[in-house]
Design a protein around this nucleic acid. Sequence first.
RNA 1: GCGAGCGUAGCCAAGUGGUUAAGGCAGCGGAUUGUGGUUCCGCCAUUCGUGGGUUCGAGUCCCAUCGUUCGCCCCA
Length: 426
Amino acid sequence: MSTVQAIRGTRDILPEEVGYWQQVEAVARAVLGRAAYQEIRTPTFEQTELFERGVGEATDIVSKEMYTFRDRGDRSLTLRPEGTAGVVRAYIEHHLHAQGGVQRLWYLGPMFRYERPQAGRQRQFHQVGVEVLGSADPRADAEVIAVATDLLTGLGLKDLRLEFNSIGDRSDRQQYREALIAYLTPYKADLDADSQDRLTRNPLRILDSKDQKTQAILQEAPSILDFLSPDSQGRFEQVQQLLTDLGIPFNVNSRLVRGLDYYTHTVFEIQSDDLGSQATVCAGGRYDGLVSELGGPETSAVGWAIGLERLILLLQQLQPPKPANLDFYLVSRGDRAEAQSMKLAQSLRQTGFSVELDLSGSAFGKQFKRADRSGAVACLILGDAEAESETVQLKWLASGAQESLSQKDLLSQTEQLRKQITALKK
RNA sequence: GCGAGCGUAGCCAAGUGGUUAAGGCAGCGGAUUGUGGUUCCGCCAUUCGUGGGUUCGAGUCCCAUCGUUCGCCCCA
């Protein structure tokens, strides 16, 4: 094939699908706005170092999935693989912490990871995310989760599970890590190959192995929850209580760990069974160490990200595509009529109607066929006779009823027309 | 990075080594030179992702390559 194609792992969102995206964006704006989150837009690429430090050099994202390149000034740049690092960078750079209080931010945009594409996974994908910076209050943890569930249920999604866990602070996790290694080492030969490898590299990740034998061995493994300090334990319980008070069901899952280095305490995922093997549609948690890690002041923070492609996959299973939302389809034939049709279309648009003008110049029969398919509520007909008398035929496409009126009247009866059209759109 | 499946028109496809590549949807033209959603007729792949090979003969078999899908790793 000699024609140029979209890059592997990227895709075009065509008009027939874009309605879903607009819907998601509208609901996200509304829900986040109501909770006093403010939108922030950061660059699509950053210094490579930001992600190495922020996401963690040992993570798969940084070690093998980043789109990193050198620019003409020989700087190492990277297409952002996630949103948090850039937001935190901006927070520090613009001294948003100096404004005092809590910063509630949200973002939406494309992210890039060099991975093998499959269902619900692409190389360029989109996330909407929130970050609450400057609060260690457990209510912040509960709030971000509540906002996420509002967003998802606001789109009509059901059958979602909230998996919830605490991975404690660094020292809790360090002790647990040692205990887990001690427990698993005698079973090493029985673990799946990947997990054997992870035993030294990243033992916590063994917990969510999909291998059955490994999972059987893990039945008796120590739980992170037994290693939480009293403070960590207290936080964990408070967040759970708040979720219960809010009526948000959750499932404590002590096997839940996250792939990014910066998480502490609260971690959670919202999952669906309708996504194939990529079940997680929303994931997040607390990251109290990240801001200082990136050179800012000690700052508590919590946030999440939602994968929009996965979200839209769910939405499509639930809703048929929305039909076109057109008021008028204007058909015309003959020089004078065609000239008038142009002006009539424009005038109607200026009074707030949506109008599609048929440009084909083909026989009326063909134009009607297209009018019918356009999904318009009404068809306006302008031929030689109408042009002569400066009238227009107004045909209601559902009923077939047709009336003749002057173009002047059509443009002056906008109130009444509007009402009739809205009534028919239902 | 690893494993498996699949690439025939804009879309869905039949085709299982024998030569003219079914059918459906959509589109376009006509029946119907000013009235749609129904119906009828006609048109729409010198070629089966690409390159090479096997064969008298390849969309069908083999190899490579690209793309795609699903899974693993990992992640939203």
